[in-house]
Structures are given as structure tokens and as C-alpha cells.
Computed example of a mutant assay.
Amino acid sequence: MSTTRSALSSRNYLTYLTGSTLSLLGLWIYRVALAWYAWELSRSELWVGIVAATQFAPAVIFGPVFGVLADRLDRKRTSILINSLSSVNMVLLGALTAAGHIDIHSLVVLSLVQGVLDGGHAPVRMSIVPNLVAREQLQSAIALTSVAFNLSRFIGPAIAGVLIAAFGVATAFVVNGVSYLALIGVMIVVNIRPRTRSERGRKHPWNELMDGARYAFSHRAIRGLLIVSALASVCGRGALEMLPVFADDIFSGGASALAILTSAVGAGAVIGGLALSRGHDWLTTRIIRYALSTAGILVILLGVMPNFAGAVSVVALLGITLSLCGIGAQILIQSLVDDEVRGRVSSFWGMIAFGGTSLGSLLVGTAASAWNLQSAVIAAGGICVLATWLSGRTRS
């Protein structure tokens, strides 16, 4: 019988979840607006892939460093600082867009700045949640946080579609900038449980980084979960970053079609997250691998799908399976990791999960420019299925 308790019984966590959800709505409004604006400015699958890559590449390049900082610095103050800088960056992007001073190159620069800020905040955010609740509420808290993320993915694109159609992308960028204020506000008032780490004997940052790497990759279960996360990100979420091209070039639906597709992914992810929030006695690495194989098959189906309604159904199912891979892996990792290295291990997960999406979107975008979008997506799905099968045989 599951010993999981709902994190919603914690007023501290509920306060955090409320502010975080409002901020996440802004994030998804931004992501849809950014992808659409990149396509609008360039009409190039390659540039769409590059802009998508800027959102996640910093997590790959600087992720371990961000993780060390998350374990060394005060997480509350760090979160407030990063979110304040993110708000300023988004308002600047919105103002420059409204003034007509943005081209595809400057868009890449400002989205890269935001990618650095998001990459720095990722291990801080993942380390904060376990320190807001009791241990028996941890699984519920991680799953509910992910539900909020994906519920925002469901609602945010719909809001983005309305904002873009009625007021333009500049307004969508500014709305995201304002949304950071909600998270800043709750971070000021929530109580974060002190870490168990002793300040005595602190090592050089490089040594701490290497200690975190050795811990993560010598732990067989954590290492396996990181590999699964990498495959899901590169092959699954990398293909989903091409949804702007599917919406406009394949199905000729424009920004409204993109909002529907992105919302369908979010709806599926919410279903997967809710399933995980009700208990994880059934959750194992094997189950996550089955979900990943299914995701690869669904990516192939997306590449061959001839009509928009079918594509909506496929990406909704992709939302479920990729959610089981991503949230499930994070739940198992957070339940295994020691608190004193939580920031560093979280940074490796973020580096792989978000950086894999960056790499995947760049590879799919490049392949689509060389061949065509459907062929590139079919190849990504096939690689996902094959790599999952091979990694499973290696472990057996």
C-alpha cells in the first residue's frame, strides 16, 4: 500500500504551487510566442530549431556549474534574483519587438539570455520543492508540480494564441515578464526547510562538481534514469519542438493550430502527471522504458499523419508517454538522491532533459532542412525505439 501523502495538505507547498503555476502560464505563453515569432521572422525550420535550442542549450553547457551553485548558495535568494532578471529580460524583449527592432539574430541573442537564466534556475527550483514538504509528501509534490507545469502547457498556448492574434507577440513576451512577479512574491513568503548539508569542509567548486558527477553516474539506478531521460528529450521532445512547422507548413493552420497542438501535448502530460500523483508503487525503470518505446512509435506516427485531427490525437498521447518518462524519472531520482548533492544531481537531470530537447530540436531542424520535416521526425522516432531497445538489452 502506498505511503504517499498529498502535498496539498501543506499550506507552505500550496502557496508555492500557486505562484509557480502563474509563472509557468507565462512561460508557456512565451514559448509558443517565441516559436511562432522565430518562424514568422525566418520561415526556416533550421532557425526554428536554433531558437528552440537557445532555450535549453545553457542547461547542457553550464548545467553542472548551476548545480554546484544551487548546493552552495541560498536557494530562496537565488530564485528571487534569477526571476527578477528574467522579468527584466522579457519586458525588454517585448519592448524591442513592439518597436520593430527585432530580427532573427537579435531574437536568438535574447532567447539565449533567457535560456541561461532558466538553466540557472532549474536545479534551484527542483531542489526547493523537496525542502517544502515532508518526505512522505515528496512524490506527491513532484508530481503535482509537474501537473501544474503541464496544465500551464495546456492553458498557456491557448492564451498565447489569443494574445498573438489580438495584440501581437510583443504583448505575449511582456505578459511572461509580469508573470515572474508571482513566483518572486511566493518565494519571499514560503518557508524552506534547512538543508542537511554541513558547511564544514566545503571543497573547491570543481571538486564538488566532480563529486556530484561521480555520485550520479556511479549510482546504477540514477544512471539508468538519466539515460532514459536523455532519449525521451532528444528523440521525443526534440521532435515536438517542430510543432510550429507542422501547424503552419504541413497543416496550414497558423498560430491557432500551433496553440491547439501544444495544448494537446499539455493535456496529455497532465493526465500522466495526475496518474503519478496518486501513488508510484507501480512505477519502475522498466515501466518508464515501455513508455519511452511507445513514445518513439508515436513520433513515427506524427511524421506520417496526413490530417490535423490525427496529429492532435498523436501529440496528446505523446504528452502522456513523455510525461511518464520525464516525471517518473524525476520522482525516482529525487527519492534516491541525498539532499547534500540534490542540486548537482538535479542539474544533471536538467542538463540531460532540457539539453536533450535542445540537441534534438537542432538535429531535427537540420535534418528537416536537408530532407523534409516528416522524414526527419520519422527518423527521430525510429532512433528512439531502437536506442531504447538496445539500452534495455545492455542492462539485461
Score class of each variant (00 low, 15 high):
138 L>E: 08
127 S>Y: 05
132 L>G: 03
123 P>C: 13
148 A>W: 04
177 G>V: 08
123 P>Q: 12
147 V>F: 11
131 N>W: 00
145 T>P: 00
121 H>E: 14
125 R>N: 11
157 P>A: 12
128 I>Y: 10
136 E>C: 02
173 F>H: 03
153 R>F: 06
127 S>A: 15
171 T>V: 15
122 A>S: 13
165 A>V: 10
154 F>D: 03
142 I>M: 14
119 G>A: 15
130 P>S: 13
166 A>K: 12
133 V>H: 09
165 A>Y: 08
140 S>P: 06
123 P>M: 12
127 S>N: 04
162 V>W: 15
172 A>Y: 03
132 L>D: 05
121 H>M: 11
160 A>N: 03
178 V>I: 15
132 L>S: 04
178 V>K: 06
168 G>I: 10
178 V>R: 07
119 G>N: 13
136 E>M: 02
121 H>P: 00
173 F>R: 06
129 V>N: 10
148 A>C: 01
143 A>G: 08
149 F>R: 01
161 G>N: 06
170 A>G: 13
147 V>Y: 02
118 D>S: 14
179 S>E: 11
179 S>H: 12
128 I>E: 09
130 P>Y: 13
143 A>S: 14
175 V>G: 05
169 V>P: 03
152 S>P: 02
134 A>Q: 13
120 G>C: 11
160 A>M: 03
139 Q>S: 15
140 S>Q: 08
161 G>L: 05
172 A>C: 04
150 N>G: 00
138 L>S: 09
179 S>L: 10
157 P>I: 10
151 L>G: 15
135 R>I: 01
145 T>Y: 01
